[in-house]
Design a protein around this nucleic acid. Structure first.
Lengths: 344, 344
DNA sequence: CTGAAAGCGCTAACAC
DNA sequence: GTGTTAGCGCTTTCAG
């Protein structure tokens, strides 16, 4: 590990006996440099161990090649899918992700957005459509394309690629009702920073009322995000307080799987005694025994579409009109909510 | 979204009627600026919507505040834990993560490392101790502190925070033998970019031979990483080809859970007929029914220690000696490998 | 407590 | 095909 400062373009130029400008040209394609010179330059670069300094180039070009992204948590398969698709969609345009997580906290989001903006990203992707007032201002005044994802904000800041979490949750209620259940509970996080979870709960309540059912069975399992373990303990409490419950809709597949395991432990048959549904279409939901009914939010598609919007915005001359892309989540029916034939 | 270029320090200075230098001072603490002036500056900043340009400051300071990190996959709870702990440990020193994933591919790692180094990170964390020759050179010549994690490389590039994946896998073999099993299989990925998975398999083979057992039951479930589904189909093949198998050690908890579900589907009792163990101590392993025996690699600790080493290195005057921190993974015994009492 | 000058490493624009 | 000049936005250094 050499402690001396790294070689610059000038060092390379000196070694070859040309000007830094020629080195700069040799490093980019589509520029004309004598073949001999170009080779000599590349040889010098190898020998010196020169590494191009993107920081300096950025300052000069007023382009950083960064796209900043905020997600609530890195440890979430849904957001990981989105981020991955985003990164893959941006790579061909040599845009690099600058990722930060908010821990489901709007104040942390504000601080994070501020620190990310200092890096002069060329575009910004934020998860969710709810922000502090100052965060909204920061984003709006940044002058870069903003994409809000995983939500359908009533007052978008810019582009949107998302869906209505309330409508998606309602799909699950409809499905439970269609399969003959009426005593339906909801397991989710405490009301708080997780606006998607909150919306799903509200969607649950609305759909229950629409069906003329009691929407009071709301089990709060702790601050978002809800772990499998919290899903399990919420299920235990639910079984104790409302033994006659017929169906449970969970804010995520993780919570649903936890609830399922609790039923197994308690000797409750799923789906015969209690039906269970989750949200997110995690791998886990498809493979568990029984497999769990869920909602596919098309996490990868969200990332891919956000990337496409960004690439288009950045290559456009002027400011492009805001694009709102509403994804339609789909119900994945699985055995955990199969209809039971216990009627007369 | 304003398309005009963002205000600079000069703009703020002009508005207040001071020099940019005073604005610069007002933005950092520990510098003396007239209180009135400071307030006026902050007011001007608010009004103009000025955002500090870290890019320019970096160039001048020769400090970017970036720490680059490569992980094989973003969608992996173990690496997510490590990255999170790393980010948390670095934040107090205002170091920001620059994250990239390699997809378990050493060539992609090389390309990624190269592109990350152009951003002039102040330190670099790489997952794994195996790299292409050029990648090794790039890292070594970078002149910044390097930390290799999740592995115990024979020829470290710099600092190390990791463990022997072979030794950890051997713990599982020993445990299976201790609980009375001898026909033991291993489910993992194809040999390839995942050096940790490969090492675990080699650790399995070594330990089996040490116990005088047949180590030939190796099921390759596809390229790394192995999904739950691939774990399940590997288990199915194993049950068909070797119905007398007594125990299965899986390269990860995800594969182990997949294998477990396949046993449930096939009516094979776990642990009575087949014992199953995983690796990684995912939440899933603790909560599944039955809970799955696994190895806790202390993923968060790895991240936290790597962060500590980086912070120490960067605050040290000269180059600090390389630190090799060997983590000792622990066996988490659970019901999936409980001893069965079917002897005479 | 404040300002002027210089320069971090790179490249657009303009020579030649 | 190559070199020169100037400057991106900030901060170190040195004056005052």
């Amino acid at each position: 590990m050499s402690q001396r400062k790294p070689p610059t373009m000038q060092d390379v130029a000196d070694k070859v006996g040309v000007s830094p400008m020629t080195v700069s040209r040799a490093l980019r394609d589509g520029t004309s440099v004598n073949v001999q010179t170009r080779e000599a330059i590349h040889r010098a670069i190898e020998e010196l161990g020169y590494v191009f300094d993107a920081t300096a180039a950025n300052l000069r070009n007023q382009r950083t090649g960064f796209v900043a992204v905020t997600i609530p948590s890195i440890n979430n398969a849904n957001f990981a899918d989105t981020v991955r698709a985003l990164a893959d969609g941006l790579r061909p345009s040599s845009l690099q992700l600058l990722l930060g997580y908010t821990d489901y906290d709007l104040d942390r989001e504000e601080a994070l957005v501020e620190s990310l903006l200092r890096r002069r990203p060329e575009a910004m992707v934020v998860t969710g459509g709810k922000h502090t007032a100052r965060c909204r201002r920061l984003l709006q005044e940044s002058g870069i394309p903003i994409v809000e994802i995983w939500d359908l904000p009533s007052e978008p800041l810019g582009h949107v690629v998302g869906f209505s979490n309330a409508a998606a949750a309602a799909l699950l209620v409809d499905h439970m009702v269609a399969t003959g259940r009426s005593r339906i509970a909801f397991i989710g996080g405490d009301a708080g920073g997780d606006s998607r979870g909150t919306e799903r709960r509200q969607g649950f309540i609305g759909a229950m009322q629409r069906h003329g059912l009691d929407a009071a069975q709301l089990v709060a399992a702790g601050p978002a995000p809800i772990s499998m373990r919290e899903g399990a303990s919420a299920m235990l409490r639910l079984l104790q307080s409302s033994p006659s419950v017929e169906a449970v809709i969970c804010v995520s597949d993780l919570a649903a799987f936890g609830a399922l395991t609790e039923c197994l432990r308690q000797g409750i048959a799923v789906p015969e005694q209690v039906a269970i549904a989750g949200f997110g279409d995690y791998d886990l939901a498809a493979i568990s025994v029984p497999p769990i009914t869920t909602i596919d939010p098309f996490a990868k598609l969200i990332g891919a579409e956000a990337a496409a919007i960004i690439v288009a915005s950045l290559s456009a001359k002027g400011p492009s009109p805001f694009k709102v892309l509403a994804i339609t989540p789909e119900l994945r029916m699985r055995h955990s909510t199969s209809p039971t034939h216990e009627g007369p």
